[in-house]
């Protein structure tokens, strides 16, 4: 059984919702990431989404763009990110890790080479933001052959036909983007999210995570009331930016926010 499925099954028996923090790998420098991943698990993270830095993050707002730029100043590559996951796995064999990024670094490495290396490193799921299921057939098959879960985005604009298509391609969980916009933008409308989740659940039994626009314990709690998982990214990355270079402060501030959110959901 996949680590992700296992994680959601366990949470379900305890009637808990998943807390999924996102940080960009290598931000603010490459030595930050692995200790931060452990700190997030200790603060209540159930699954970790690890951002793979890309030079042209088209779907991201300014906060995560700057995180990618900081990581790329240190030339953090997809291979480096896999090395970080390998290192994380030396002490944590149960927390699922999902890589979130853009397709081009995976294309350049090659689908098969990437999938084998990711499985070897202990990655559990892969979310390529700019790869809709229409273009994903080959990558999905390659990921599945290595027991990796392909994670896909759903959006407010996705109609029934697309929701069906996406849920058929996905495993592990699906990620509902709560606002029409980029990461870190706007305020979400919880009622609209609840309505959309109802529509999505007509098509799938997969857990549904909700992200984009979750900033604090209050918004996390509101979303957790309707979703299976709460994804928080920009609010955390902003804390990395504010404490850039100070490792202990980064860990403490992010753990602090996650604990507040954990308590609320």
């Amino acid at each position: 059984m996949s680590r992700i499925k296992n994680c959601f099954d366990k949470l379900k028996t305890r009637n808990r919702k998943a807390l999924i923090p996102y940080v960009t790998a290598g931000d603010s420098d490459p030595t930050v990431t692995v200790p931060l991943m452990h700190a997030m698990v200790n603060a209540g993270a159930d699954i970790i989404e690890l951002g793979v830095p890309f030079s042209d993050p088209m779907a991201d707002g300014p906060v995560i763009q700057r995180a990618a730029e900081r990581a790329l100043e240190h030339h953090v590559s997809l291979r480096d990110v896999l090395t970080m996951v390998t290192e994380f796995r030396q002490q944590d064999s149960h927390t699922p890790v999902v890589l979130m990024g853009y397709l081009n670094p995976v294309e350049v490495m090659g689908y098969t080479v990437f999938a084998e290396a990711a499985a070897q490193a202990g990655v559990d799921g892969v979310l390529t933001v700019d790869l809709p299921p229409e273009e994903a057939e080959t990558l999905v098959a390659t990921l599945r052959s290595q027991q990796l879960d392909p994670i896909f985005l759903l959006a407010p604009t996705s109609d029934d036909e697309r929701i069906k298509l996406i849920c058929e391609a996905a495993s592990g969980y699906v990620y509902y983007v709560a606002i029409k916009g980029v990461t870190g933008a706007g305020n979400l409308d919880v009622q609209a999210v609840a309505d959309k989740l109802e529509q999505i659940r007509k098509h799938t039994d997969l857990p549904v995570g909700v992200g984009f626009g979750i900033k604090d314990a209050e918004s996390a709690a509101a979303v957790a009331a309707v979703a299976d998982a709460v994804v928080v990214g920009s609010a955390l990355v902003q804390k990395v930016e504010q404490a850039a270079g100070q490792h202990d402060r980064i860990n403490a501030e992010i753990a602090g926010l996650l604990m507040q959110m954990r308590a609320g959901i």
Binding site: M58, E134, E135, L153, R162
Partner: peptide, 12 residues
Amino acid sequence: GGKFVAETLMVP
């Protein structure tokens, strides 16, 4: 070619 964009843009 193709359509390599985030989901929000697929329907538009």
